[in-house]
Simulated assay, not measured.
Amino acid sequence: MDLLERVQRRAMKMTRGLEHLSYEDRMRELGLFSLEKTRLQRHLTAAFQYLTGIYKKAGEGLFTRTWSDRTRGNGFKVKEGRFRSDIGKKFFTVRVVRHWNRLPREVVGAHSLEMSMSRLDGTLSNLV
């Protein structure tokens, strides 16, 4: 847990009327995501923008896309690259691919960024 997460947890403890609730329940009551889920939301949003061509030049070659109707969940899968060292595991594409491939079809198949964001919020809020 990083410093910012510890500060957020401490601030949540000072919220009046919610002292009896756990950290996760306080966040849910206030309609907030943890910092980890907020980071994941931003990464998945950026991945959507790369994959749909909003970031054309910057996103060239970031992901290997595969499309199949035979897979469960969403049919729009992306593949991770291969890296020789552990440093590769910290790259944006590697962090995002695992989560992207588990998203429901309605999130990854959205026609606009706004629609994808609202569906992603709903999906992530179920995980809180």
Rank of each mutant, 00 (worst) to 15 (best):
M1E: 08
L4A: 11
E5R: 15
E5W: 09
E5Y: 11
R6P: 01
Q8V: 10
R9N: 15
A11D: 08
K13A: 15
M14N: 15
R16V: 14
L18N: 00
E19S: 10
E19Y: 09
S22V: 12
S22D: 14
R26D: 02
M27S: 01
R28Y: 10
G31N: 06
F33T: 04
L35N: 03
K37M: 09
K37A: 10
R39T: 15
R39N: 09
R39A: 14
R39L: 15
L40G: 10
Q41I: 14
R42Q: 09
H43E: 12
H43T: 06
L44Y: 08
T45Y: 07
T45W: 03
A47P: 03
F48K: 08
L51N: 11
T52P: 00
T52C: 01
T52S: 01
K56E: 11
A58L: 06
A58G: 05
G59P: 01
G59W: 01
G59Q: 03
E60N: 14
F63W: 10
F63D: 06
T64R: 07
R65N: 08
T66K: 12
S68Y: 00
R70C: 01
R72E: 06
N74A: 01
K77S: 03
K79W: 05
E80C: 15
R82T: 14
F83R: 10
S85W: 07
I87E: 13
I87M: 15
G88P: 03
K89L: 12
K89I: 15
K89T: 11
K90Q: 14
F92S: 02
V96E: 02
V96N: 03
R98E: 11
H99Y: 12
N101I: 01
N101S: 02
L103E: 10
P104G: 09
R105M: 02
R105K: 06
E106F: 13
V107Q: 13
V107E: 13
G109M: 07
G109Q: 08
A110R: 02
A110D: 03
H111I: 10
S112D: 03
L113V: 07
L113W: 04
L113H: 05
M115Y: 09
S116Y: 13
M117D: 12
M117E: 14
S118M: 07
R119A: 02
G122C: 00
G122V: 00
L127Q: 13
V128H: 03
